[in-house]
Design a protein around this nucleic acid. Structure first.
Lengths: 175, 175
DNA sequence: GATATATATCTTAGTCACTAAGAGATTTAG
DNA sequence: CTAAATCTCTTAGTGACTAAGATATATATC
């Protein structure tokens, strides 16, 4: 045992707190989709487009885990709503780039204002050095979650009986 | 202007990094649901049950934003899968408590092991004091997101033309 | 250069989770 | 004791999703 009891508890608290805030983050997203009047996956794709810029339909399918057929539907709806445009790649005419229509970023962005304000308020309680620590953690956390997602996807290709037994460290929770 | 340019950039980076990792967190959840062979909302409810303990069907509807009818379906599926049990409240026989079946926590929990391992690895790079800072941030962040969600929900009840104009601070992103 | 294979998106048919509206059961208020 | 309120479930209908395959374009092989 290299960890003291207090630290194990700290880590458990941390895990729960992150899980809780992440769950609430999901709910915020659902609410945005509701208010904006678009489907959840549609908003998810808008978010990817915001973060990655112009991407192909296939990449959207890859990142969201949806089938290409489903993405066709997503893009159809977003295009009809005037939020994105299809742009055929002139180099490879099989590809279709999806690009956010300039004004659309703001139409959707406004619904993130309450979140930004709340976060600004929270960030206000931290020094620059502490904020840099949070940034470092956010970046490392992203990489960790990405890796974990890949690891978990790997299980999908493995038949259940051949899966390496996962040692479970969570204890059942008392309500 | 009370903030220096460097800090504004830091905050923007932080916002993007959090958005990115939170988006990846959503994807992790979707993958868990896939691997576990249950619907997304079903898993979301399992998560709420894990965090809140035994809750009523109505509370699940409230927290998830689904209708009570949808929750009936969720609970039906989870019950059939042997993950939860319906328990009528003896004090108020209209209410139905949903409780996680003891072993079920582990059945689902195993799919969070890759995530826990990834996070343990990340946490390993921080001192106890830094971890406490992260915990403080996670808790404050949760409260912030919760408040933001409520604020946004408020907009739903306000007719679009009567909504207080949200001042947009995001700048459109260059892809 | 012609043919075969690969890649990227779209189409179609069918499935399943969701909403809206209201029914049924129980509790609380007058 | 009746009326209103609360909580869950039921029903009918809608819409986003998958699987499979069609279409169009690109790349590889001979």
């Amino acid at each position: 045992m290299s960890r003291k009891k207090a630290q194990v508890e700290l880590l458990q608290e941390l895990e729960d707190a992150m899980r809780r805030s992440s769950a609430q983050g999901v709910l915020y997203g659902q609410t945005v989709a509701n208010v904006a009047g678009i489907a959840n996956s549609d908003l998810e794709c808008m978010d990817i487009l915001y973060l990655e810029g112009r991407v192909t339909a296939g990449r959207l399918a890859e990142v969201t885990g949806l089938t290409t057929g489903a993405i066709t539907g997503v893009v159809d709806r977003l295009e009809k709503a005037g939020l994105v445009r299809r742009e055929r790649d002139e180099k490879d005419r099989r590809k279709v780039f999806i690009a956010v229509v300039p004004d659309a970023a703001m139409k959707i962005g406004q619904f993130y204002v309450p979140m930004q304000q709340a976060m600004e308020k929270v960030f206000g309680g931290y020094s620059d050095e502490e904020l840099r620590l949070l940034l470092r953690f956010a970046n490392e956390g992203y990489k960790g979650v990405l890796a974990a997602t890949e690891a978990l996807k790997g299980l999908l290709d493995t038949p259940p009986e051949k899966r390496p037994a996962l040692k479970l460290k969570t204890r059942p929770r008392q309500p």
